[in-house]
């Protein structure tokens, strides 16, 4: 699709979801849109010169787009665009749509890093992947009285969907709940399946004032862990810069061993 300066700009308005974004790609072809920009319902600000097009999220259309993309991309490439969507960076929706158009129309390779959009997808996917790995490492469960291992997280990117299977495989015999307090949703595993849930907190979810929600010996294990952490360090080798590079300060809030 070649756009000319006379083509009107169309603003696509979608609901911010993954299927919504894929529906945008579908509509670009369905309505033969040329020059587009994309925004979510919350961020949309009308202007006098552009047409708007509201995208209705259609799972069927989204699946068709996914099927089409999977013919152009390796499984890693597919995972990369999903990761880019989960980055929630405002510019990524446009990048993903442009990238999809590139793939469909020019048959460009996902490894042609000379193209700025191809490079951007790879770079953002890498960032999200890094945080996904960090979350696998930095999640700290606390045992509640209901026998649920509970953890709160506040990742920069929305990586919770990317770590569910890891925790499900690893902790198959314990009930757990990982809650993203920044995005107000969590995933709960009941020994059989996982489901997305939203909690209704009366107060700040990270610091339940009612310490009674945790099991009797929970604090004891936290103390043991903190104590262990302190004793494995070798003072004569202290290297704070290296420590900070591996454990950036923004993650400390949820790390048991970093609490006083």
């Amino acid at each position: 699709m070649i756009s000319s300066p006379f083509d009107p700009m169309t603003i696509l308005i979608y609901d911010g979801t993954w299927y919504g974004l894929l529906s945008c790609i579908f509509d670009v072809y369905e309505y033969k849109l040329k020059k587009i920009s994309v925004t979510t319902k919350e961020l949309f600000q009308p202007d006098a010169f552009s047409k708007t097009h509201e995208v209705f999220t259609s799972p069927a259309n989204a699946e068709r787009v996914l099927k089409g993309l999977s013919k152009k991309l390796s499984p890693t490439g597919m995972a990369s665009i999903y990761s880019c969507h989960l980055s929630e960076l405002p510019e990524m929706a446009s990048v993903i749509i442009r990238y999809a158009r590139l793939l469909f129309s020019s048959g460009i390779s996902e490894k042609a890093y000379g193209n700025p959009d191809v490079l951007k997808i790879a770079q953002v996917a890498k960032k999200v992947g890094r945080e996904r790995h960090r979350m696998k490492a930095f999640i700290r469960f606390r045992l509640t009285q209901d026998d649920i291992y509970y953890a709160t997280i506040e990742p920069d990117f929305n990586v919770l969907p990317l770590i569910v299977s890891h925790f499900k495989n690893r902790y198959a015999d314990q009930k757990w709940l990982i809650y993203d307090t920044k995005r107000s949703y969590g995933v709960y595993y009941d020994l059989h399946t996982t489901e997305e849930i939203q909690l209704d907190f009366a107060e700040n979810p990270e610091k339940p004032t009612d310490t009674n929600i945790f099991a009797e010996n929970e604090e004891q294990y936290q103390t043991l862990w903190k104590n262990y952490f302190k004793h494995v360090s070798i003072d004569s080798r202290k290297n704070t810069a290296l420590h900070l590079r591996h454990v950036p300060k923004r993650y400390w809030k949820h790390l048991t061993e970093k609490q006083v």
Binding site: K136, A137, R170, A172, I234, R237, K238, H243, H246, V247
Partner: peptide, 22 residues
């Protein structure tokens, strides 16, 4: 973890780092 037990192994995860950076 195919016996519905606890845990598995893979590429290895560093769960935290000491103040000497290990």
């Amino acid at each position: 973890n195919d016996n519905k037990g606890l845990g598995n192994t893979g590429n290895g995860i560093c769960h935290t780092y000491t103040s000497d950076g290990r």
